[in-house]
Design a protein around this nucleic acid. Structure first.
Lengths: 305, 305
DNA sequence: CGGTTGATTATGCTCTGGATGAGCAAGAAA
DNA sequence: TTTCTTGCTCATCCAGAGCATAATCAACCG
């Protein structure tokens, strides 16, 4: 019971194309006898003769017409499977899940997305705004391909992920418009002592949290008092505007104007907060690898920092 | 350069189905090692790894997802090609061109067509009303698969065609309604001497023509005088109605009432005229063969003659 | 730390699939 | 006609593909 193989389909199609075993065999790069045998084997397997051939002429039977038409479709489908798999291998096609902390949206994303989509229009990109800790979980679970996170990462995560720094931003103070310090361009950390803080919960992103705490402690000499917690930058700025407290946020958040909050620089210039692209150390799909490459290009371009 | 073959597609699909090389190999009826090799060869050919496999688990890569989905489609198309070719081989599917002399339409066709279409609903049947001589040409040119003709056939045609008698009908005289003999139920051939005849042209169907001529000559003792020629039964009866002459036609033509013509039996009962199904002696498609079988069944059924 | 599961590597064998050459039928040319 | 050419098929032979068996190695499990 010899199964039908693609060589049989290719043989039938070639013979149908040329209506001539010799030329068909030449096209296939084999001699006539094997081609005759292949066609005959196919016909025996199908129980139908596909070609009427006297010693002089070759003609398709009705069954042959049907079969060859179907065979062409099948061969096209196989070719499609091959090319699409190769494309996927090159990262030209596929899907990509990108995670990002809230502030990424504001500055970096538009430029990056536009560059990537220009270069890889056939990749479906899905963005999710998630805190760093959640992204680490999902990267580990392969629910996310890459993620924009705030370093540093907890050490177990460092083992599985590679971090590529993509941006550094200064920290800014956010105050409600009517606050007593709201008219200052720059503020000393010490002047924030005693203020109620709106903060991002530590368990979802220790990097930025600890950096701010250390800043208050060492440059300000006080322990920040947490009045409210929120996990989205819009919410934090909104709570500040509503008078629930003040906050310290990455510089890109200053793009969130019009909410009734004002931003001021920090006086002993705090070390800038980092944004990094986290990528699994192993098993990165070509699609994700290409995205990383584009991200690197965009962030290294002159005029970006 | 090993081309992709269906065995590779079957292997990839089986592994994707089970996510387990052992079970996949069992399903394919081979051992694990060859399956591993087949998958690896495929991956090498495509330049992409389709499966992520540590020694414990097997998982599809994104490229694998795409490829396996396409491979399923391709395999389905091959299966479709096979089944349709087999169907065509059994005559269950395809096209059929049937020729017929005019009078066939009236009696035989409805019963035959209904029986055939019930049994073979997926065959597209095309009927053409053609004189015997034209049918012979087209049968020879394979423009017609089978044809209902009036025997006998010219001897060169006999060599290539097989004739199956399917009906015998008596000959009837057709007269215009106002004719002097129009009130008779049966007429002696002799009484038609001198009448102008509307005839079917001999070169398009010698069988019936010669039979009528011989009848007039031997039983009537006269030579029929041709006043008009026509190649369709409706036209012949119409010309008779219009007073252009009389005619002798197969019995089934009597179904053409309402044209102002009357029919009468012939007195020295003429040997009935035959209707036969002509089929090429060689290279008959299964579809045509099935039609012949149904035709034989229908015409041999009790109540038919 | 063995035991088990399960994929890969290594090796040998079988049988398929292709090449080569002979056979043969049908049209073309002489 | 006879002969030549064309072109599919049959027969034989050989290389390599593809499968099996056995060995190897890695990870989970008790």
């Amino acid at each position: 019971m010899g199964r039908v193989e693609l060589r049989h389909l290719r043989a039938a199609v070639a013979v149908a194309d040329h209506l001539h075993f010799g030329r068909a065999a030449a096209e296939l790069g084999i001699a006539q006898p094997p081609l005759s045998q292949a066609v005959k084997a196919l016909e025996r397997e199908l129980g139908v003769s596909l070609f009427d051939r006297d010693t002089r002429h070759v003609r398709l039977t009705p069954a042959g017409e049907l079969f060859v038409a179907d065979a062409r479709d099948a061969l096209a489908m196989v070719a499609r499977a091959e090319t699409r798999a190769r494309s996927a291998g090159r990262g030209d096609i596929g899907e990509l899940s990108v995670g990002m902390v809230g502030s990424t949206t504001l500055r970096l994303l538009p430029a990056l997305l536009s560059a990537y989509r220009t270069r890889y229009p056939d990749v479906v990109v899905r963005f999710s705004e998630l805190p760093t800790a959640t992204q680490i979980e999902r990267l580990r679970a392969h629910a996310l391909d890459v993620g924009f996170v705030r370093p540093p990462l907890p050490s177990p995560a460092e083992a599985e992920l590679v971090l590529l720094p993509v941006a550094r931003e200064p920290l800014l103070v956010v105050l409600p418009a009517g606050h007593r310090l709201a008219d200052r361009q720059r503020l000393h950390v010490r002047s924030l002592a005693g203020e109620p803080f709106v903060r991002f919960p530590r368990h979802l992103g220790a990097g930025l949290y600890d950096q701010i705490t250390a800043l208050c402690r060492h440059a300000g000499g006080f322990e920040p008092r947490v009045a409210q917690q929120a996990i989205q930058m819009q919410t934090i700025v909104g709570l500040v505007s509503a008078g629930c407290g003040i906050s310290i946020v990455p510089g890109s958040v200053a793009a969130l104007t019009g909410l009734g909050a004002v931003f001021a620089e920090l006086m002993p210039a705090a070390s800038p907060v980092e944004l990094a692209l986290a990528v699994p150390r192993h098993g990165v799909s070509p699609v994700a690898a290409n995205f990383v490459a584009v991200a690197r290009d965009v962030t290294n371009a002159p005029g970006q920092q």
